[in-house]
Nucleic acid binder design. Structure first.
Lengths: 257, 257
DNA sequence: CCGCTGAAAATGTACGCACATTTAAGCTAG
DNA sequence: CTAGCTTAAATGTGCGTACATTTTCAGCGG
């Protein structure tokens, strides 16, 4: 094993550097099979076991690894169940879990200006925005009508992207290197308008979720989104406890209306 | 300072005993002015500073105390604002925050049996249940129709409680000593039936949230609840980030329809 | 009386050691 | 070849030490 070096000039605590380096290596998949033991890390990084345990303790507190007596630490199953995206993510992962395939019809993808939306993104009213409107399907049935506005200065490279099968966040991450780390959303129960009902092919007596959402990346507003989700087949599901707080979980999806 | 004793027979780790004792003393209000320093605890409990730090580290991770270099630890302000209750709690606290007063009309409070609900509470189908049905108001307008079932074996003392102004959880905590620590809920968007619409005084074109929820206390199912919330004036609001996960926040309430 | 300085105190970091307890692996006997 | 035992290895607990860094406070001088 290669001896790894840490910065001992006192800029950052050794255990913190070690923790960060382990997180990095862990995310790279290096430890998918086996996680190194404490003594191995002592050897590799040339620090005391005390320091190693301090770093591992933090990783354990974050739920990245699990450790037991006499047994080597292992990478926690479902490493990072971080709820990345909120209610929408929960809904779409519910569909995924139910075995239905998802795809979208792109109804619009262009650059336009909208003063109201721009102000919600902390932009000048005249700022150009990339606008993406999709009708999202779960299986053969429409699931949601999704409209997103992003600053064109940031998102213009996505103009030629194909959004019929890939997610916006995927494209944002891979092509622009922007990852949402914070957001806010409002969820309302509404009755869709006749026009919306026609697009979503809802039965006449169905309600819907209306979700407004602002996503930010490093404190900068990156997206404003409005999604209308059919309420007759999809539900939000959540679990909460003292330790874990409030967590959205994949819900059951009714295949047939 | 009195020397305090810990059990050194190996039943439980010293740091855990210390942690639990400190939590106990902390909750009793003993440390409201000043929290003892590490060295003081070393003296009091006759353990090493390492052990004391291990216990304090846990308290700090739980957010009970805050510590800084060179400064004595202090009891954390707002000790535990844990999101206790999920979507419903969020909705009702939104109303509270908007300045509207809340009260309820108790439509039913009795003991009855319901096989379906009982099975959801992991009880025999014939088990008696305490049933509470309330119409909850925000200001002068109905907000939600709330129906709760609890095991009668547990909740029977609540039969003579007055639920027009106090919350169920309050009564559960003070009169029975049960506090919910875990729960699961489904949130659906629905169109209320004409009967429901009449009770809630909804406009004809309004949708509603239908929330089903099971609450547990120490792994034992304690309540099953169904709440129908008017969707024309109330929304769910949430914030999410990498650090804090998904947190429901009080939303704005529209006073006028 | 105010402000500055320096000492004392407190926590943070880092090292070392020893032993307990549990798991995993290897080895032996049947 | 398998079952059971023994041994090695790994983590958990607990103690000690030393020094760094920061805050607090007392004392001193202006």
């Amino acid at each position: 094993m290669i001896q790894r070096r840490l910065d001992r000039t006192g800029g950052q605590p050794l255990w913190k550097q070690l923790q960060q380096d382990l997180v990095r290596r862990l995310r790279s998949g290096e430890f998918d099979d086996t996680f190194p033991g404490e003594l191995a890390l002592v050897e590799d990084y040339q620090v005391s076991r005390h320091t190693v345990r301090q770093a591992l303790g933090k990783l354990r507190a974050d739920g990245l690894i699990v450790a037991e007596r006499g047994r080597q630490p292992r990478v926690a199953t479902t490493p990072e169940i971080r709820q990345p995206m909120g209610a929408l993510y929960s809904l779409f992962s519910s569909v995924e879990a139910s075995g239905l395939t998802q795809h979208s019809i792109v109804r619009a993808l262009d650059i336009r200006a909208d003063g109201v939306i721009a102000s919600r993104l902390d932009l000048e009213a005249s700022s150009p925005l990339l606008y993406l409107e999709r009708l999202r399907f779960a299986g053969d049935e429409p699931l949601a009508l999704d409209r997103v506005w992003l600053p064109a200065s940031l998102a213009e490279p996505l103009l030629d992207a194909d959004f019929t099968h890939t997610s916006l966040y995927n494209e944002l991450a891979t092509r622009i290197g922007v990852r949402l780390d914070h957001g806010r959303e409002d969820i309302r129960a509404v009755v869709p308008t006749p026009a919306e009902r026609a697009v979503l092919r809802c039965p006449p007596e169905a309600a819907a979720f209306s979700i407004n959402r602002q996503g930010t990346s490093q404190s900068r507003p990156v997206e404003w989104r409005h999604t209308l989700v059919r309420g007759d087949r999809f539900a939000l599901s959540a679990e909460f406890s003292e330790n874990l707080g409030y967590r959205l979980t994949p819900a059951a999806v009714q295949h047939q209306a």
